[in-house]
Every structure is written in C-alpha cells, then in structure tokens.
Nucleic acid binder design. Structure first.
Length: 292
DNA sequence: CACTTGACCTGTCCGC
DNA sequence: TGCGGACAGGTCAAGT
C-alpha cells in the first residue's frame, strides 16, 4: 500500500481536484469498507462541500463544511481516483485511460458523486482499507492518532528526536522498528529497505547495536528517500495510482526494492531478497552486514 | 511493557 | 491448462 509518499501524492492530487466541490450522492458496496449509518451520510455528507484534504502518517482526511471528516486508510491496495464528468479530457492513449474509463469496477467500494457529475472512487482489491465519516474534532481521538509517532519530513523533526523515538525499541530489529508507526510515522516496506540500504545497515541489526553515525545516516536516508519519492509521485508496485489514475515513478529509481539479482549501485554486488520483520526484504549482502 | 506472529482479503505468479 | 502454495505497499489482536 501506499506509504507516506504515496498518500502525500494522493492528498495533493485531491486538493487540486475536489476542494470546493459539493457532494450530491454516495454509494458503497459493503459495510466493512464504509461502516457509517445512512443517516450520518445523509445528514453530514450529502450536500456538504469539500473544505480541504489533509494527511497524517498514512491516513487521509477529507474535511467537509459540515465539520465532519472522511477518514481514509488505503492499507495495501486502496486507491482514490477522481474522474471528471468528461473523462476524455485526458485524451486517447493517456496511460491512465484504461483505469479511469472503466470505473467503477469490481474493486470499487465507495463512489462519491459531485454536483457536476464528476466522481471520486475508493477502490480496494484486498478490502483491508476503510473509510469513516466522523466529526472533525473526533479525528485526533482515534486510537491510531493517539499512538502514531511524529512526521519524519517535518522540518521540526530532529535527529535527537529520531534517536529518542527508537530508544524504546532497542532490542528489536531495526526494520521492525522502522515499520512501527508508533515510533515514527509513514515508513513502510519500500522505504524501510531503501533507507536501510542508504545507511548501510542490515535490516535485522538490533537497534541498540547501531552506532550514532549510522543512526544519523538512517535519519537522513529516511527523509531523502521519501522526499525523492514524493517528487516522483510515489511508487507504483502494483495497485497504487495517483488521484488522476496515473502511476508513480519512484521504483524506476529504487536502489534495492524489487531489485534482487541486479548489481548494488554502490559496489556492484548482487542485491538479494530475504525476510525480515515478516516482510520481503531487499539488501546488498556486502554493504549491509549483521554486526557491523 | 517490548516483541513476534497470525489474521484480515483478493489476485497473481511460479513450480509441479 | 489446472492446482497448490507463497507472496503482495499495512495494521491489529493475540500470543510469548
């Protein structure tokens, strides 16, 4: 699923496409994806105007003028795709044509219609994702929001804080700690591997065994790979797409993720794929060594 | 508390 | 071509 850079890219796209639009109808296929009562939808969503779209960690928030918010988690395969009333505006042959011209499809969980007959589709093949309507003031009270760590790309997020956040996970593997959203927000499987390669740290290294210099390299690496990815529109490994249905380009620039069998860009050693923290994990076996 | 593992779903790919 | 198993960008609830 989308990690921080992908969710940030969707947020920016939605801010461009849907702010100011009025919702005229909503339709969903199962209670699992969108468990709100029809009365909530009728009273606080239909007729509301989109005020702004925000992101915290990997969670999207669409604020409405009713002081209610649509809170959305895309999990592994979620998509939020906006399709204009005249979808041909992209022109024949545009790379996202095949997706947007065929929505809704069997993965569509929720369809939101705006006053100009344009649509926002929430698609999710694996159905792990969810969308909920709740009062805007209640969003920070969600259990996830209570425990989630700081945003690593904020300029106020310092190396000192980074080190402190990881200190309470000193006995776990560094990759598991990086993926723990309560330590820092937004890192997922792709950027964990990319940042660990950048800092030359083996993913199974115990946090407490990592030198200050390497932790600093990791702090820099996390921020660099995620900033680069945002500038490239995120990573489209399988399902992820922008709010206009097009794909992200980060994986064309990835150093290790999905690059097993190809040479390490620094030393030429073949990248391998293994398992760490229960996840597929990519690394350079020469530069990322346990106990170093 | 810190830490690990399995469960939630559907689709795809790979080996037999 | 079919079938079984492993695996896929995330989080939770359980277990130790």
């Amino acid at each position: 699923m989308p990690e921080l850079p992908e969710v940030e890219t969707v947020k920016r796209g939605l801010n461009k496409f849907i702010v100011g639009r009025v919702i005229t109808s909503e339709k969903h296929d199962t209670e699992k994806g969108f468990p709100n009562a029809p009365a909530d939808v009728k009273n606080f969503m239909i007729g509301a105007k989109i005020r702004a779209v925000r992101r915290r960690a990997k969670v999207l928030m669409i604020d409405l003028t009713t002081d209610y918010t649509l809170v959305i988690h895309l999990k592994m395969t979620g998509q939020l795709v906006y399709v204009a009333a005249d979808a041909t505006r992209f022109g024949a042959g545009h790379p996202n044509d095949s997706l947007i011209n065929n929505l809704p499809d069997k993965s569509t969980r929720v369809t939101i219609t705006f006053e100009d007959d344009s649509h926002l589709y929430f698609n999710d093949q694996r159905k792990f994702g969810w969308m909920r309507l709740m009062p805007t003031v209640a969003v920070p009270e969600l259990p996830f929001m209570q425990k989630v760590g700081p945003e690593p790309l904020e300029s106020s997020f310092t190396f000192v804080e980074f080190k402190q956040r990881f200190a309470r996970r000193k006995n776990s593997a560094i990759k598991a700690a990086l993926l723990d959203q309560s330590v820092i927000a937004g890192v997922g499987n792709i950027y964990a591997d990319e940042a660990l390669w950048s800092a030359k740290i083996h993913p199974l290294t115990r946090v407490g065994d990592i030198s200050d210099a390497k932790m600093k390299a990791l702090y820099d690496g996390v921020r660099e790979v995620m900033n680069l990815s945002i500038s490239l529109g995120g990573s489209s490994s399988r399902n992820y797409v922008h709010a206009d249905g097009s794909k992200g380009r980060y994986l064309d620039f990835a150093k290790v993720f999905h690059r097993e069998g190809t040479p390490c860009p620094r030393c030429g050693t073949e990248i391998i794929k293994t398992r760490a923290a229960g996840r597929g994990t990519h690394l350079c076996p020469r530069e990322q060594v346990l106990g170093k």
